[in-house]
Amino acid sequence: MTAGRPPRQGGVGRLLLHAFAYAVIVFLLLPTVLVAPMSVSPEKYLQFPPSGFSLRWYGEYFADREWVEATLFSAEAGIISAIGATVVGTMTALALVRGRVRGRAVVELLIIGPVVVPHIALAVAMFLVYEQLRLTGTLLGFAMAHIVLALPFAIFTVLAALYRFDADLEMAALSCGASRIATFRHVTLPMIAPGVASAALFAFIISFDEAVVSFFISDLDRKTLPRKMFEDIDFDVSPVLAAVATMLSLLTILVLVLGHFFKQMADRRAAPAREGKTP
């Protein structure tokens, strides 16, 4: 033990604690990680370790019209939901941070509503109403449902960005003669852009992966990817599913990497101007 450093406490305890933490991480990652090698096995049933390497099940996925259509439909719904949730979420966040809102507590409760209300409750309730409104199985129906599910996250992401952004810059822009809308376009939006981009990203993945509500508001020929997976899993644990699962995990990794990139961008923007830097 070197002098000057606080003594490390409980060597053995610390070791056990770290070992336990790593074990938990393995527990968190292992199931999904194990599926990836299984998906490249040529055998008809899942095997670990795989008996060889083959992209047979990926090929089958791309050759199956149902899988491809479900994927495209999910992508469409995801993109529309991402745009919708980001636009509506940004508007809501702006009103909350910069505006005067009566009944703010009600608005805040409504925002967390779609998170704390169990998705099963929302799903059957939407099923009931969508039947009457003829929204079942429609893109509009999925998009509206997914926008509502993604909104809380979109709003909180933009809120966080707005809180980090120096509101005096908006005053400065107004004093320069910019209208409210010009201020938003030229100053606020560029400053919170990384936050808005992450909001869109996470709204997309929420919609793309959403299974419960989709399960109820799909109809026979328009179904999302998760709905198709749900049906197939219930049916049999085929290796095509392992391929789909692996691709979805890769998509998640891509989303997180992009999200991290946006966060770094946001950090750079929020960094206060350095002082005392001489020319």
Binding site: P31, T32, L34, V35, V237, A242, L248
Partner: peptide
Amino acid sequence: LPLWTSVLVRTYAWMVL
């Protein structure tokens, strides 16, 4: 990573295991 991975994917993984 698991937080943002589809619940279906993770459930499926457990079924396989």
